[in-house]
Write a protein that binds this DNA or RNA. Structure first.
Lengths: 159, 159
DNA sequence: CTACTTGCAAATGCTTTGCAGGAGA
DNA sequence: TCTCCTGCAAAGCATTTGCAAGTAG
């Protein structure tokens, strides 16, 4: 029984509510942008957004992403060591980790599971304690080679 | 018995060797830059480098960092969601993770330990398998609040 | 000597911003 | 109708590059 929105309608309502709290509106442009983020099962780059929503000017996309971040709807993802990407915050989706393909730059979402999460949180706590650091969250990225790049050695470039 | 260089001299020799392999020279400027990375116990940003090595022009610093990356001496670190930072590769230091202060942006290195590493590697393997992804490495970032920012609520800004 | 490096300045390219018109509530 | 949003064009900035001089080997 997660406290996450469980269907598309509830999700959009939750997003609209968050925007309202920030005195912002859930316009059709923003809705298209968010819908794209929802449909993608991975963090998306600006160029993916541009390709998917050709009628949404870049400057508007950037500005919307800033606003959506401010409202706690979207967060930046520092992917490989390359491009900035965006995804819905975990309050709207679920906690997950990322698989980063070192070959093509693809980023995949992978759900963790409660056992792993407990173990990771414990480790994080232990490591943080050494520096009197207060752990609030963690991020686990797995670097390697995706299925496509394993079977097709010639593919290259970020998706 | 790590296969990492264990003292400063051996470290610089290892670095010089790597540069040679890439037909590059370990000039005094590069040595100063590397020494700064070694002395820092955390990933450093361009502005930190600039402050520490005022006589090293930015363009040269950038170019050196690119070359050092190519030689496997340095790697980029996508820290919080903010600035690019650089650190020595783990072949020259040791595997470690990062504590990211959400308040001031500070990034601290924290060594892991074999038990944790085994556990994390197993998890990574399990999660990767779900996508036929070949895990090669992992990255664990712990997000929270550093000791300084916990005691002094007013501090702000990246170091 | 020959090839790699450096420093300056100019160019790039992503991201942000100013402003006037348009849209949401 | 008041406030927020959008689009275009211009501005900002971190990073990269061209080129001529410097330097390591």
């Amino acid at each position: 029984m997660p406290d996450h929105p469980t269907n598309a309608e509830a999700l959009h309502e939750a997003i609209e509510a968050r925007l309202r709290l920030a005195d912002q509106r859930y316009t059709s442009g923003r809705r298209r942008l968010v819908s794209f983020l929802v449909a993608a099962d991975h963090p998306v780059s600006i160029s993916e957004i541009e390709a998917a929503l050709p009628t949404l000017p870049r400057s508007t996309a950037y500005r919307n992403l800033v606003d959506l971040q401010g409202a706690g709807v979207v967060r930046r993802v520092a992917a490989g060591d390359e491009f900035v990407r965006f995804e819905l915050t975990e309050e709207l989706t679920e906690h997950h980790h990322h698989l980063l393909c070192l070959h093509c730059g693809r980023v995949l979402d992978v759900a963790s599971d409660p056992l792993f999460e407990t173990a990771i949180a414990d480790m994080a706590e232990t490591l943080a304690a050494r520096f009197a650091f207060t752990a609030r969250d963690h991020r686990l990225d797995i670097l390697g080679r995706c299925a496509q790049c394993s079977s097709d050695p010639d593919s290259a470039g970020a998706p």
